[in-house]
Amino acid sequence: MSWEGIALGLFSLGIIGFGFFWVIRLEYYLGYLWWPYPMALGILFILASFFTGNAGWSALLGITGGSFIWGATELKEQAVRAELGWFKYNPRRKPDPPGLRWIKKIKAPHL
């Protein structure tokens, strides 16, 4: 009997919980247009997971990467929730993400 699988399951629960936290904060302070950056971070985590010698570390990096990619797709909906008054709306002007011109050409993903 091995508890490692359940430890990974609980880790995924924790990292998704952390996702709720950072999606709300990132949308509040920076805005949903920053979505490519957490997505890129998630992809980097997954790429890194291929090159770890240990299956456990690879698993932790993969779960973190998958969760960050999901979070990136949640930012747009979070912006709508804030505009609807379901979450605190930040009236201050949000900083433009680097590469805004290109980001605006792609429709923000939402699943």
Binding site: I46, S49, F51, L61, I69
Partner: peptide, 12 residues
């Protein structure tokens, strides 16, 4: 190492 890739797919 493919373990992380499968975990990422399943998580997402």
């Amino acid at each position: 190492q493919f373990a992380g890739f499968w975990m990422a797919m399943v998580t997402f």
